Amino acid sequence: KKSYVLIKVKNPKTKETHTIVVPEENLEEVLKALASQPNVKVVDIERFP
Rank of each mutant, 00 (worst) to 15 (best):
K1T: 10
K1R: 11
K1G: 12
K1P: 12
K2H: 11
K2I: 10
K2F: 10
K2V: 10
K2D: 05
K2Q: 10
K2L: 08
K2Y: 06
S3V: 14
S3G: 10
S3K: 08
S3P: 08
S3Q: 11
S3E: 06
S3N: 08
Y4C: 05
Y4P: 02
Y4I: 03
Y4E: 01
Y4K: 03
Y4H: 03
Y4N: 02
V5T: 03
V5W: 15
V5I: 05
V5C: 05
V5G: 01
V5H: 02
V5S: 02
V5N: 01
V5Y: 15
V5F: 15
L6P: 00
L6V: 07
L6G: 04
L6S: 04
I7V: 07
I7Q: 00
I7H: 00
I7R: 00
I7W: 00
I7N: 00
I7A: 00
I7Y: 00
K8R: 14
K8M: 09
K8T: 09
K8I: 11
K8F: 14
K8H: 13
K8C: 06
K8S: 06
K8Y: 15
K8V: 08
V9Y: 15
V9D: 00
V9Q: 01
V9I: 09
V9M: 10
V9L: 15
V9R: 00
K10P: 00
K10H: 14
K10A: 09
K10Q: 13
K10M: 13
K10S: 11
K10R: 14
K10I: 14
N11R: 04
N11W: 08
N11D: 07
N11E: 02
N11V: 05
P12H: 15
P12V: 15
P12K: 15
P12Q: 15
P12I: 15
K13M: 13
K13G: 07
K13S: 09
K13F: 15
K13I: 15
K13W: 14
T14E: 03
T14F: 04
T14S: 06
T14R: 04
T14Q: 03
T14H: 04
K15G: 15
K15R: 08
K15Y: 09
K15A: 07
K15M: 13
K15D: 10
K15P: 03
E16M: 11
E16W: 14
E16T: 09
E16H: 12
T17A: 04
T17L: 10
T17C: 11
T17G: 03
T17Q: 08
T17H: 07
T17I: 12
H18S: 08
H18E: 05
H18Q: 06
H18M: 12
H18K: 09
H18P: 00
T19G: 04
T19D: 05
T19S: 08
T19F: 15
T19R: 07
T19A: 06
T19I: 12
I20G: 00
I20S: 01
I20L: 12
I20A: 01
I20H: 03
I20C: 09
V21H: 03
V21Y: 11
V21R: 07
V21F: 10
V22F: 03
V22T: 04
V22D: 00
V22E: 01
V22I: 09
P23D: 10
P23T: 08
P23H: 11
P23Y: 13
P23S: 10
P23E: 10
E24A: 08
E24G: 04
E24Q: 06
E24S: 06
E24N: 04
E25C: 05
E25H: 07
E25A: 08
E25I: 05
E25W: 07
N26T: 07
N26S: 09
N26G: 06
N26Y: 13
N26R: 13
L27D: 00
L27N: 00
L27C: 03
E28N: 10
E28S: 08
E28P: 07
E28M: 11
E28Y: 11
E28H: 11
E29Y: 13
E29N: 09
E29S: 10
E29G: 07
V30W: 11
V30Y: 07
V30R: 03
V30F: 13
V30A: 06
V30C: 07
V30M: 10
L31K: 01
L31M: 05
L31Y: 02
L31E: 01
L31C: 02
L31V: 03
L31N: 00
K32Q: 08
K32M: 11
K32E: 06
K32Y: 09
K32P: 00
K32F: 10
K32N: 06
A33K: 10
A33V: 10
A33G: 06
A33N: 07
A33I: 13
A33T: 07
A33L: 14
A33Q: 09
L34K: 00
L34M: 04
L34A: 01
L34W: 03
L34Q: 00
L34H: 01
L34R: 00
A35S: 09
A35T: 08
A35Q: 09
A35N: 06
A35H: 09
A35P: 01
A35Y: 15
A35W: 11
S36L: 14
S36F: 09
S36G: 09
S36D: 06
S36I: 08
S36W: 07
S36Y: 07
S36T: 08
S36P: 02
Q37A: 06
Q37I: 10
Q37K: 11
Q37R: 14
Q37T: 09
P38D: 08
P38E: 07
P38N: 07
P38Q: 08
P38W: 03
P38G: 10
P38V: 07
N39I: 03
N39Y: 09
N39E: 07
N39D: 11
N39T: 05
N39V: 03
V40I: 10
V40A: 07
V40H: 05
V40W: 13
V40L: 12
V40Y: 10
V40K: 04
K41E: 13
K41S: 08
K41M: 14
K41A: 08
K41R: 10
K41L: 14
V42A: 02
V42E: 02
V42T: 02
V43G: 02
V43K: 03
V43Y: 06
V43F: 04
V43P: 01
V43W: 03
V43N: 02
V43H: 03
D44T: 15
D44A: 14
D44F: 15
D44I: 11
D44L: 14
D44E: 12
I45E: 01
I45A: 02
I45V: 07
I45Y: 05
I45M: 06
I45K: 01
I45L: 04
E46R: 15
E46Y: 15
E46C: 14
E46Q: 14
E46L: 15
E46F: 15
R47C: 09
R47F: 13
R47A: 07
R47M: 07
R47V: 08
R47L: 08
R47I: 11
R47D: 04
R47K: 08
F48K: 05
F48C: 14
F48H: 06
F48N: 06
F48R: 05
P49T: 11
P49H: 11
P49D: 13
P49R: 06
P49F: 09
P49A: 08
